[in-house]
């Protein structure tokens, strides 16, 4: 849920941090370092992984076999983070990622999850009526495409490898990465060639 924390929560955080410092558990630099690392994780990394997979069959095979290793190949520090699994869309199958029990998300790779991903409505409805949820994101799948909803867990995080859209033939990795948004990596939208931010 989005929103402003209660004053008592702000106070609690200050007291918690002060106590942890006083007792020698951590120093301010530890917090700053972890925050910098968290801010470094961005959807663009996942987008670049997808673009590489579209162009390089060997990387594609690695990404589907071992998403963690594929993320590490892009410089993501995965030590301590839950493993990454990658779900391959096809012309007949679309994946949608949710976490019904909490909000598990491949943070280490693509950063802080959006608020809607953590919302009760998304968590409750994605598994019950995925096509209705997709429609709220403006996504209508072609007839005949099956939807597979995948529930992330605390121990395993999922990301989608969407199908490469028509109209992107001959594009560079950079051009391809530019049409893969965070929402494509969760499966609520599809990459489209018209969204190109870099002229083809």
């Amino acid at each position: 849920m989005a929103g402003t924390p209660l004053p008592e929560s702000v106070e609690l955080l200050d007291k918690l941090v002060a106590a942890l410092k006083r007792r020698g558990v951590l120093v301010e630099e530890d917090i700053a370092r972890c925050q910098t690392q968290a801010e470094r994780a961005q959807p663009e990394t996942g987008a670049r992984m997808v673009a590489r997979a579209w162009l390089d069959p060997e990387f594609r095979a690695l990404m589907l076999r071992d998403g963690t290793a594929a993320a590490e190949a892009f410089g993501v520090a995965m030590a301590g983070a839950p493993p990454l699994g990658v779900l391959e869309d096809t012309d007949r199958l679309h994946h949608l990622v949710v976490c019904t029990l909490c909000s598990c998300y491949p943070r280490a790779v693509i950063g802080y999850p959006p608020h809607w991903y953590k919302s009760a409505a998304y968590r409750a409805r994605a598994v019950r009526e995925p096509r209705a949820v997709l429609a709220e994101f403006g996504t209508v799948l072609p007839a005949g495409v099956q939807v597979r909803v995948v529930d992330s867990t605390a121990d395993y995080r999922w990301m989608v490898l969407p199908t490469r859209p028509a109209g992107t033939e001959g594009w560079s990795e950079e051009q391809l990465a530019a049409i893969v948004t965070r929402d494509c990596l969760v499966g609520v939208t599809l990459p489209v060639a018209e969204n190109a931010r870099i002229a083809a």
Partner: peptide, 13 residues
């Protein structure tokens, strides 16, 4: 997952 309480709550992209 599937909780009917949120059946009519739209997801806000």
């Amino acid at each position: 997952g599937g909780n009917p309480r949120f059946r009519c709550t739209p997801v806000e992209p």
